[in-house]
Structure formats: structure tokens, C-alpha cells
């Protein structure tokens, strides 16, 4: 009983602290957009707050650089020691809402063995995806054949949504970026 009470107090206190800490002005979570993940759950973008994560944007029917974006995220996570790896979240947001349904995201996650956690694959309505890309400094453009031109970058966010580092090194490890991830996880 005493333990339960203490636990309740702790939860209550932690909740208060979390609720009261104002969002920094340079936090990406200032943007109000909604995402839907590979399990069909719908949540506000700001619900990602509280986690150090590596984020990028992609589309599942991409055959060129996108598989490399995923591979590079995998490599980056693998370069961490186990305890750090367990605390890093990985988020991929699609900029192709027309074709990337929840089912398509799920199928892609299964095929590429991107299990939750740490992986979240998500979609956003096209206006929201455009805003999210602008916020993260990513570029994309749909071509008449349905493919996309897009920039490929990994972005590191701290728990409050500040952009700590970015890397456009694809297909191999970027030591500076890995170092930034380690530092972010140690600081948490």
C-alpha cells in the first residue's frame, strides 16, 4: 500500500513536471500536425516529445535512395551500445499519402523487419507532410510518373524536439552523427 502510494505520488509528480515544462521555441513540436502509424494509431506529432529520436522522410514504393535511408538508420542504431540503442527511437514519415496507407506502411515494416519499438513508420495528410518537411529542412517533389525526387537526410531530435544534428551521408556510417546520437542519449 505504501509502495503504491509512493508510486502514485511519483507518477503524479512526474506528470506535473512534464505538463508544466514549456515547449522550447525552437522545438519542432511547436507544429500542430497529426500522424498515423503502421498500426493505424493516430496521434499529434508532439506526442513524440520525451524521446531522443532519429527522423527521416521516405515513401515505401521508392527503389532508389530510400532503402539506403533505412539502412543508414539501422547502421546508426547498431553502432550504439545496447543500453543506448534501447533508448533511441527511429521514425520514418512518408510524403506519399496517396499510396502509403496504413497497410502499405505495415507491409513495408514487415518486409524490412522494422519492428516497433524502436521503429515507427507514419503517414500524414499531404499538407501536413509538406509542413513537416519544411520544418525538418527536407525537400521532395512528386514526378508525373508517381515517383519522387527528394533529399535524403537523417535528423537527430532531442527529447524536447530540438534539432541537434543532421547527416546526408547515406549507405555508410557518419561518425560525427553517431557521436551526436551518443551524446544526446547520454544527456537524457
Amino acid at each position: 500500500m505504501k509502495h503504491l502510494l509512493m508510486l502514485l505520488c511519483l507518477v503524479f509528480f512526474a506528470g506535473q513536471v512534464f505538463a508544466r515544462a514549456p515547449l522550447p521555441g525552437d522545438s519542432v513540436y511547436q507544429l500542430e500536425v497529426r500522424l498515423t502509424d503502421q498500426d493505424g494509431h493516430d496521434w499529434p506529432w508532439a506526442a513524440r516529445r520525451g524521446h531522443v529520436q532519429v527522423v527521416s522522410m521516405f515513401y515505401t514504393s521508392c527503389t532508389m535512395v530510400c532503402p539506403m535511408v533505412v539502412d543508414t538508420m539501422k547502421l546508426t542504431a547498431k553502432a550504439l551500445d545496447e543500453s543506448a540503442r534501447g533508448r533511441l527511437d527511429l521514425l520514418l514519415v512518408s510524403f506519399d499519402p496517396a499510396r502509403d496507407s496504413v497497410a502499405a506502411l505495415r507491409e513495408y515494416a514487415d518486409r524490412r523487419k522494422l519492428n516497433a519499438p524502436p521503429w515507427t513508420l507514419a503517414r500524414a495528410e499531404s499538407q501536413d507532410a509538406r509542413q513537416l518537411a519544411a520544418l525538418l529542412g527536407l525537400q521532395y517533389r512528386q514526378l508525373p510518373d508517381g515517383d519522387f525526387n527528394h533529399s535524403s537526410e537523417l535528423i537527430l531530435l532531442d527529447a524536447d524536439g530540438r534539432i541537434l544534428a543532421r547527416s546526408d551521408v547515406m549507405g555508410r556510417l557518419d561518425p560525427d552523427f553517431v557521436q551526436a546520437v551518443r551524446k544526446a542519449l547520454a544527456a537524457k
Binding site: V65, L143, F148, N149, H150, S152
Partner: peptide, 10 residues
């Protein structure tokens, strides 16, 4: 080519 996946820079 790597930076801009797809048809490359326009």
C-alpha cells in the same frame, strides 16, 4: 544523385 533521390536535381 545521392542527395536528391529520383531524377537527380532538376
Amino acid at each position: 544523385k545521392l542527395k536528391f533521390c529520383g531524377a537527380g536535381a532538376l
